[in-house]
């Protein structure tokens, strides 16, 4: 039964939806930690430290998260591959109806942007030495992770790339939240319009909150290029 489910187009789609939903929950958690930056260097570094101290729980969580990412990407790949095969010869004239929202149309693009971003993001913030003083120094103070974040975002290229990625997150979620309901059959027609609106609002909110951080850094600490 499970094998049949995993082989079916609907089953695969539902796997993508459920893994996406869990990833979004992680994202909300991630966001709540990130927003700690507004509480100042001390609190922010403390939060980071607490997470470091979770030990095995953290390892399991990280493994789970990696698994979710891989599942989400792998099943998306399967679904997309089947769909590409379903129409080998395209139309000479391309035309979409108003039904199809911009975020829906951009899913392949935003998905790809996010994949690249996540890899670069891990390289930037995850696989680095927090105690590397050179990185963590902000204006002559050694400020740990907080310092690393501030230093990165003072680079306008990093900030811009980050904000582009957050627009992609917002767009991706605008389609995704709504889609989860549809894919699990919780859309009964009347709720459709409301669902799509809420989906766009939540997606935009998450994107704005994430995106506010580099802006805040640039406004409070100034751009590195200006100095």
């Amino acid at each position: 039964m499970l094998a049949k489910f995993l082989k079916s187009s609907i089953g695969r789609k539902q796997i993508v939806a459920v893994s996406g939903l869990l990833l979004m929950l992680f994202l909300v958690f991630h966001l709540s930690v990130n927003l700690g930056i507004y509480l100042g260097p001390h609190t922010y570094n403390l939060l980071a430290h607490r997470l470091e101290q979770l030990g095995p729980v953290r390892v399991v969580a990280e493994a789970g998260l990696t698994g979710l990412f891989l599942i989400h990407i792998f099943f998306t790949f399967l679904v997309v591959k089947a769909s590409r095969r379903a129409r080998k010869i395209g139309y000479a004239v391309q035309s979409s109806s108003a039904q199809r929202s911009l975020s829906t149309r951009l899913m392949p693009l935003t998905g790809t942007v996010l994949l690249v971003f996540i890899i670069s993001h891990l390289i930037d913030f995850k696989f680095i030495d927090v105690n590397n003083t050179l990185l963590a120094v902000v204006e002559e103070h050694n400020l740990g992770l907080y310092g690393i974040v501030v230093n990165s975002f003072r680079n306008p290229f990093t900030s811009t790339w980050y904000m582009i990625a957050m627009i992609a997150v917002g767009s991706h979620l605008s389609h995704a939240i709504d889609s989860v309901f549809q894919t699990f059959g919780l859309n009964d027609g009347d709720t459709h319009r409301g669902l799509h609106k809420s989906s766009v609002i939540i997606g935009t909110l998450i994107a704005l909150l994430f995106g506010s951080i580099p802006l805040y850094v640039l406004l409070t600490h100034g751009s590195l290029l200006q100095q």
Partner: peptide, 18 residues
Amino acid sequence: MDAEGFGACSNEYECEAA
């Protein structure tokens, strides 16, 4: 439906419009 080679739904809703 899958065996016939139709693609998967990605909630684009173009079907309803058409």
